[in-house]
Design a protein around this nucleic acid. Structure first.
Length: 825
RNA sequence: GCGAGGAUGGCGGAACUGGUAGACGCGCUGGAUUUAGGAUCCAGUGGGAAACCGUGCGGGUUCAAUUCCCGCUCUUCGCACCA
């Protein structure tokens, strides 16, 4: 008996060989078809990789390997999303500089990826926190700024009064700071924004161009939240002060406007203050303070009762001149539409609830189609027919909306309007660990961009990088860095001290992999034209809106600027499912149930781990880790090793045995199935097919002398080539052992011949009334008559035909036969 | 509430344009080997003694439905007072 499979020995043996051969290097050959395969830009966390991450990295590696063997020019790079809050927080916790901790973490990721032999072209490694990289992130900022897509504005953000810092939305839990648990509040700060809203329609429309999961496309659409309606201007009067103001409101149901009985404005709306009358001031002020303190979760809860107070002012409905009271209510969002709504209790559930509570009138102006006009429902929210609506009565809702919009525009009381739910992208971060925003504030010239030739604006190397006080970045405390000269007038000026959101770095990294070292531009146009867009993009569904939306936005800006020739960066997107712990809960450090690649490679080797990750379940769905399962995969790897090594193919004689024909068909069947399965992300079935083929090969070996046949040699070679992307070490070792030349990974991927798949004799089911009764062996091209004759001869079939009349006989060639019978008279 | 998925043995999961449901693996049972355990190998494994029954539930179309249609239940995931 030959030696046993030894994972560690094979890993040590082949890694240096492959490295030397450079099998993962991207070729410069422009005549070959290209394939750009990309994994989501990972933040190298201090925890390192768990086996869960491998559900992302192993599949892309497998596909890349197959494509390479198919003679395709593959680009499969890796880099680090190293800037950002998590990296900075980790560094603060560890008490080291983020440059040090991110480098260490990235190296650990790299080591772990190599452990399972995920083959990247490491010559193209990028790190978003290095000046050579973020110089271009800043350059893109200037591009957006130049194109009028970057602006500075006051915006309310979560502020923790104890930590003296702005918090990101996800750092606020139940209205409290995640660190010190003090109540957070909104604070106005001047911030930089990107005008992503200008691209809203294109971000929706171009979803058609890409092959992404419908779920993700839908999520982006919902996030953008396009909504067509009308903007109507109500005139408001404060009876105490005599102040007049215009309150614009947004509505999608202008057809209900004759039913308006009050109006509600958001507490944050600046108009609130102006409209509140002296006798209401105390209570309204208190209400506003209360509202500002509430967490978003509390305020937006649908279950919550609708609270509000009268301001004392009234507004005038431009359609009918009705005077209606103006309320302040926190169920109206300041950030959506105009921060004020018209309220139609009869035709909107929220308004209805509010009206009931505050005893406000309900005026019915829409009747359901075919409704009894004398008995109309008090609340009806669908489209219908208008009544009590002046000249617009009797119109359908659809018609009324058109006509009313026309009236609004001609009378100057409003306009047709499209609203979007999502906000412009706030990119300012008052933190140290990010790309400095390349702007300078000059007393004379205002906000001035840094000159391109002065990029990068280097992040100063400082010891104290904890979030600063007063909502300012720690950079603000470094006068020698802050104080500079104005690029316009040369006078004294101060640098912008905020850094950019980490999502800016990941909005263009897929372009940098093409020319990672280029110093005078972000990328080379010719190379971009060849490699982009990304053909296959794989990562978790948690980035469905943020990163994927931002990257699409930047790409469109670059397209408009003539920098690239494609509108969408990622042609095909796939999301892997999560890896849960064996008990079905999430893997987490605190629960101490994280399984690492390190321990599994140690125990079973990279081959078994890779194959198991693929086999465990459907790619897109969540699966639970299984210790028994990987042992089974270990069995399979050993089985293949033993079978091949103990039966070194001689490839000499030929037999005419049935096994030979069956095995030949199995070879072609497996090549076809595995090729298609890997292409379609059906990795679990691809592994299953390889197991089936192995099982059959073992059956064949029961015939003595089979391993000397030519077909055995063909089967072994094919099996090893198909296994190569999945279990690279096993395949390479056996490839050498059976005496083949060269590396298995540089072999040509096998192709199947449809002709070899055709079976001449079919095992065919015989049904009586749709129920399986017997199976017969039948020539594939048998006629219906022959099939029927043979089927009728079967005793088991006869039993069921006895005393019956055959009403119909169905023959589907190569599939089945069916007798339709009924009792004979 | 809105939107998108999903429901198949003890478990993870297969099944092409409707055509032998349960591929493949785990687990389990029996056997071989072993001082024993583990590991390995061989055989069996949806339920039922059988007729038959079986793809969440109830209908329908069809010679034939996991697959198509109608009506439900449960479940996962997004979004959630967006006017």
């Amino acid at each position: 008996m030959t030696e046993k499979y030894n994972a560690k020995a094979l890993q040590d043996k082949w890694k240096p060989v492959w490295q030397k051969a450079g099998i993962y290097k991207t070729s410069d050959d422009r005549n070959k078809e290209k394939f750009y395969c990309l994994d989501f830009f990972p933040y190298p966390s201090g925890n390192g990789l768990s086996v869960g991450h491998l559900r992302n990295y192993v599949p892309t590696d497998v596909v890349s390997r197959m494509k390479r063997m198919q003679g395709i020019n593959v680009l499969h790079p890796m880099g680090w999303d190293a800037f950002g809050l998590p990296a900075e927080n980790f560094a603060i916790k560890q008490g080291v500089h983020p440059t040090v901790s991110t480098a260490k973490n990235a190296n650990n990721y790299k080591r772990q990826l190599s452990l399972v032999e995920c083959g990247y072209d490491w010559d193209r490694e990028v790190n978003s926190s290095e000046p050579i990289y973020y110089k271009w992130t800043q350059w893109f900022f200037l591009l957006l700024q130049k194109r009028g897509l970057a602006y500075k504005a006051k915006g309310a953000q979560w502020w923790c009064p104890d930590c003296c810092t702005i918090l990101a939305n996800e750092q606020v839990e139940q209205g409290k700071c995640w660190r010190c648990e003090s109540l957070v509040e909104k604070k106005e700060l001047e911030q930089w924004y990107f005008k992503i809203r200008d691209y809203a329609d294109r971000l929706i429309d171009d979803l058609e161009l890409i092959n992404w999961p419908d779920r993700i496309k839908k999520m982006q659409e919902n996030w953008i939240g396009r909504s067509e309606g009308s903007e109507v201007i109500f005139k408001a009067v404060n009876p105490s002060t005599g102040l007049e103001a215009e309150i614009p409101i947004f509505t999608t149901r202008v057809d209900t406007i004759f039913g308006v009985t009050f109006m509600t404005i958001a507490p944050e709306n600046p108009l609130t203050e102006k409209l509140v009358t002296p006798e209401n001031k105390a209570s309204v002020d208190e209400y506003i303070r209360e509202a500002l303190r509430k967490s978003e979760i509390d305020r937006l809860s649908t279950e919550k009762e609708k609270t509000g107070l009268p301001t004392g002012s009234y507004a005038i409905n431009p359609f009918n001149g009705d005077k209606i009271p103006v309320y302040v209510g926190d169920y109206v969002l300041a950030s959506y539409g105009t921060g004020a709504v018209m309220a139609v209790p009869a035709h909107d559930e929220r308004d209805y609830a509010f009206a009931k509570k505050h005893n406000l009138p309900i005026k019915i102006v829409i009747a359901p189609p075919d409704a009894d006009k004398d008995n109309l429902p008090e609340l009806y929210t669908e489209y219908g027919v208008l009544l009590n609506s002046g000249d617009f009565s009797e119109l359908s809702s659809e018609q009324a909306i058109l006509k009313m919009n026309e009236w609004l525009e001609s009378s100057g009381n409003g306009t047709k309007k499209i609203n979007y739910r999502f906000r412009d992208w706030l990119i300012s971060r008052q933190r140290y660990w990010g790309a400095p925003i390349p702007m300078v504030n000059c007393e004379k010239c205002g906000s001035v961009p840094v000159k391109e030739e002065d990029l990068p604006v280097l992040l100063p190397d400082i010891k104290e990088f904890k979030p600063g006080v007063n909502g300012k970045s720690p950079l603000a405390d470094i006068p020698e860095w802050v104080n500079t000269t104005c690029p316009e007038c040369g006078g004294p000026a101060k640098r912008e001290t905020d850094t950019m959101d980490g999502f800016a770095c990941s909005s263009w990294y897929f372009l940098r992999f093409i020319n990672p070292k280029l110093e005078d531009k972000p990328f080379n146009r010719e190379d971009i034209d060849f490699w982009l867009p990304v053909d296959l993009y794989v990562g978790g569904a948690e980035h469905a809106v943020m990163h994927l939306l931002y990257a699409r936005f930047w790409t469109k800006v670059m397209y408009d600027a003539g920098l690239v020739s494609f509108k969408e960066p990622f042609k095909q997107l796939r999301n892997q499912g999560m890896m849960l712990a064996a008990d079905g809960t999430k893997m987490s450090k605190s629960k101490n149930n994280v399984i690492t690649p390190d321990e599994m490679v140690e125990k079973y080797g990279a081959d078994a781990l890779r194959a198991f990750i693929l086999f465990l379940g459907t790619f897109e769905l969540d699966v639970a880790w299984s210790d028994e399962g990987i042992r089974g995969m270990n069995r399979f790897v050993n089985k293949v090793y033993d079978m091949v090594s103990a039966n070194i193919p001689a490839g000499s004689n030929k037999t005419d045995s049935k096994s030979e024909a069956d095995l030949k068909r199995m070879i072609h069947k497996t090549v076809k199935a595995v090729s298609n399965d890997l292409e379609n992300f059906s990795f679990n079935t691809a592994v299953a097919r390889l197991m089936e083929m192995t099982n059959m090969m073992q059956d064949c070996l029961k015939e003595s002398g089979f391993s000397a046949t030519a077909i055995w040699k063909e089967a072994v070679d094919t099996l090893l080539k198909l296994l190569a992307p999945i279990t690279p070490f096993l395949a390479e070792e056996l490839w050498e052992m059976v005496g083949n030349k060269g590396l298995v990974h540089t072999q040509k991927w096998p192709v199947w011949d449809e002709k070899e798949l055709v079976e001449t004799v079919i095992t065919m089911p015989v049904q009586v009334n749709g129920k399986l009764r017997e199976q017969i062996e039948l020539d594939a091209d048998a006629t219906a008559e022959t099939a029927r004759k043979i089927a009728e001869e079967q005793p088991k079939v006869q039993k069921h035909l006895e005393g019956m009349e055959v009403v119909r006989f169905i023959y589907v060639p190569k599939r089945m036969v069916n007798f339709v019978v009924k009792p004979a008279k």
